[in-house]
Every structure is written in C-alpha cells, then in structure tokens.
C-alpha cells in the first residue's frame, strides 16, 4: 500500500478519534495507581510517579467493594441463566410451535415494545414490597427474567431452522422436549451466547432499578455502591478510579472475548427494525 496523503489523513483522524475514546479509560487505570492525592495537582499528571496498589487495598479492605463485586456477579450470572431459560423457550415457541393465540400475543408484544421500562417501575416496586423482595438481590433480578426484545432475538434466529429437520425428528418419535434439547438448542448456540452477553452486560451495568430496589449498603451492586461512594468521597479521585476499574474491567474483558457475538446481536436488532 502506498503512503498517499489520503491514507495518512484517514489514519491520522482514526488515531485521534480512538485516542479520544480510549483516553478516559486509560486515565482511569493510570489514576487508580497514583498515591492518594497526587492526581489533584497542576499540571495534572498522566502517569503515576510511584505506582501503588494502595487504592485497591483500601477499596476492598475498608469500602467493602469485594462484597459489592460479589452482589453484581450474583445478579448478572443469575439474570443471564434465568433469562436464557425463559426467553429461549418462548422465542423458539413463537418461531416454530403454533399454539392457540400465538399471532395475537405476538402483536401485543410488538406493541408493548414501545413502553419504556420506567413506566412499570413504580408499581413493580410496590408489588415486590408486598411480597418481601425489596432490598434483596432477588428483587434486583425480576426485570431481567423475561424480555420482549430477547424473545424476538431468539425467534428471529429460530425462524431460520429448517422445518424438515424438526419434522424428521417427530417422525422418528422424538418428543417436543427432546427435540428442543437435542436439536434446537445446539443449533441456536450462537444466539444463546449473544443473548447471554447482552443480558450479563445489561444486568451488570444497570443502575436505576438496583438503586430503587436496594436500600441497604451491604446489598448494593457495584454501580449503586460506586455512586454512593462517589458522593461521600468526592476528593479521593484515585480511590474512585480504582472503584471504576473494578467495575468496568470485567465487562470490557467479557466484551473483548465475545465481541463477535455481541456485535451480531446488535446488528440483528438493527435489521429487525
């Protein structure tokens, strides 16, 4: 490839753009390694002169971030598992198993897509209060259990399964459940991974609902704990950056590992629209 002026320009623009998007994240890591108080000086340092893990030690030993990490992990893992169980079965049924009222229900779900989740939030809080799920991790889980968008994502993928394959299994005497388990699920693996990544990231990153439903510091997920810490510890930028690292790095790593599946899901949503 020749080094034309256009090539240089395009790459220059890309390097600047990528620099701007990555700089805040790189600074987060760098500042989390600075000794307390040193990032607040002028000119603002880009690198720690004496890198230290002290902020992380304080974060886990005194601010109890280990517990919040565990809470977030429990919520995200449980949400992912349960969402897979419920949404995948429903998505497959909507694609391949004609049941009474299917078309009607499908229409209702399409219409319900336009309702923002916050409309349901206040009564849902009251409902969960009545059944004793306020201030529990179980309560945090509820909105992730089933999602219209997730059901449609699976339906879209399941529509592509060949009917002949399923019918052949039926002729061989296989029951509907074993067809689902032995034939459908293995063929749907890519979309299962996509749905899993989406749900995990969504549950891990979510803020408003856990903020509403949890009121006891020990139960906080990482984003809620971080927001409440940041209100108390405004000047401790290094400590807060360590907290941000602990929150952001797991999802970034997960995304990098499963990027292909994530982007496919994002595109599938776009095509549907």
């Amino acid at each position: 490839m020749r080094l034309t002026r256009a090539t240089v320009l395009v790459h220059g623009a890309l390097v600047v753009a990528a620099g701007l998007t990555l700089l805040p994240l790189l600074w987060m890591v760098s500042a989390s390694l600075m000794p307390a108080g040193t990032s607040s000086s002028y000119p603002p340092p880009l690198w720690p002169d004496h890198p230290t893990l002290e902020n992380y030690r304080i974060l886990f030993a005194r601010a109890g971030v280990g517990l919040h990490f565990l809470n977030s992990l429990i919520v995200a893992v449980a949400a992912t598992g349960l969402a897979l169980v419920f949404n995948v079965a429903a998505g497959y049924a909507f694609a391949k198993l004609e049941f009474p009222g299917r078309r009607r229900i499908h229409q209702v779900l399409v219409a319900a897509l336009v309702i923002p989740a916050q409309v349901a939030m206040l009564p849902l809080f009251l409902m969960l209060k009545t059944i004793g799920l306020v201030n529990t991790l179980g309560g945090v889980l509820v909105p992730y259990l089933a999602g219209i968008f997730s059901i449609f994502l699976v339906r879209q993928a399941a529509l592509a399964l060949p009917d002949e394959l399923l019918d052949a299994a039926r002729i061989d005497g296989a029951g509907e459940f074993s067809i689902y388990w032995r034939i459908v699920l293995p063929l749907l693996t890519p979309i299962l991974v996509t749905l899993a990544v989406f749900t995990f990231l969504g549950a891990w990153n979510d803020f408003l609902w856990p903020l509403v439903i949890l009121n006891d510091g020990d139960r906080y997920t990482l984003p809620v704990a971080l927001a409440s810490l940041s209100r108390e510890h405004v000047p401790d930028s290094e400590l807060m950056m360590a907290g941000s690292v602990v929150t952001v790095i797991p999802v970034l790593v997960l995304f990098l590992a499963l990027q292909r599946y994530y982007l496919q899901g994002l595109m599938a949503g776009a095509v549907k629209g």
């Binding site: 753009a17 990528a18 998007t21 990555l22 805040p24 994240l25 600074w27 987060m28 500042a31 990032s39 607040s40 000086s41 002028y42 603002p44 990231l201 891990w204 990153n205 803020f207 990482l222 984003p223 809620v224 971080l226 927001a227 940041s230 930028s237 807060m240 950056m241 907290g243 941000s244 929150t247 952001v248 999802v251 970034l252 995304f255 994530y262």
Partner: peptide
C-alpha cells in the same frame, strides 16, 4: 477502540468524566 465506551458501566465512566471535567485539575 471506538466501540469500547458503549459496553462500559455508565456510573463508572460518568465518575471518570467528573474528574476529567474538574475545573482546576
């Protein structure tokens, strides 16, 4: 690289930006 911010936790990166936007430092 350009996509990375999308998957980050909103609360965490909002806190980063609060420091990046600090008037003095």
């Amino acid at each position: 690289a350009l996509f990375a911010p999308v998957v980050t936790t909103l609360v965490a990166v909002a806190i980063i930006w609060r420091y990046l936007l600090h008037t003095r430092y």
